[in-house]
Design a protein around this nucleic acid. Sequence first.
DNA 1: TGAAATTCCTATTAAATCTATAGGATAAAA
DNA 2: TTTTATCCTATAGATTTAATAGGAATTTCA
Lengths: 136, 136
Amino acid sequence: MLSKKTKYGLKALAFLASQKGKEPVQIAEIAKQENISQKFLESILLSLRKTGFLGSKKGKGGGYYLIKDPKEVLMTDIMRVLEGPIAMVPCVSLNFYEKCDDCPSEEDCSVHMLMLKVRDSALEVYRNNTLADLIA
Amino acid sequence: MLSKKTKYGLKALAFLASQKGKEPVQIAEIAKQENISQKFLESILLSLRKTGFLGSKKGKGGGYYLIKDPKEVLMTDIMRVLEGPIAMVPCVSLNFYEKCDDCPSEEDCSVHMLMLKVRDSALEVYRNNTLADLIA
DNA sequence: TGAAATTCCTATTAAATCTATAGGATAAAA
DNA sequence: TTTTATCCTATAGATTTAATAGGAATTTCA
């Protein structure tokens, strides 16, 4: 299941992408428009800023804004920052690889191959969609 | 992420599918072979029996066995029983549909369409794989 | 210069879910 | 009647997620 953090993060990014100008949008406005707890959203936007997706400005007239053109932002990158690994098991993850402690061998693991296929199918979707596609 | 329950369940099913004969296999043996907590596995196998995947036999020489030919068991069915919805959000789930309380309209939801694509891509994998493919 | 607006940051609590264990009941076999 | 194994329910423990709290830092603007 998609975490609320990811869902809210996606909605916020989509909201910002749908704004015509590059004026900063305040947390409060996004939270209100998208039905999100403001404090929770605050922490999500903060992490999106720290990971290079958003810029911010303090004080009156401040808020958050997209740094890149939505067409240039791949869903793979967004998902990895918000949700974490795209793979369902660490042993088939490209960016978050970890060995399973209960498996003697990945070759012989019945779960491994299936999860590899699932990962690839998800990757294909995320690689072929950008932030711009969210608002189309 | 795949839950341990699902991972263990898949491994147990694959183990049973790899057995030549139809003799029941004891929980203890599966647990040992697959490095799974026996008590935890017990509850998983029980649920797989209740959902029609496994049969069981009590007493000496007892254990669990597959009811169907592994080639006839779709991964979609297994995953839904072990892991739950294949979709990442309830609003795009075929078998576990639920409306999102925070979304005024599914049509206008930026997350909805993307998650539909992800669901379809996962479904394609699960529909084209059976329990038999796990041990190939 | 100072008040208001807004993000920044850390910590903490609350809730939900997942993992694992406990302990006995039930049934079959020898 | 003893042994073996599943059946069943409850619950404890651990982890993760969701949400809140409260003030610090920065910017704007009168």
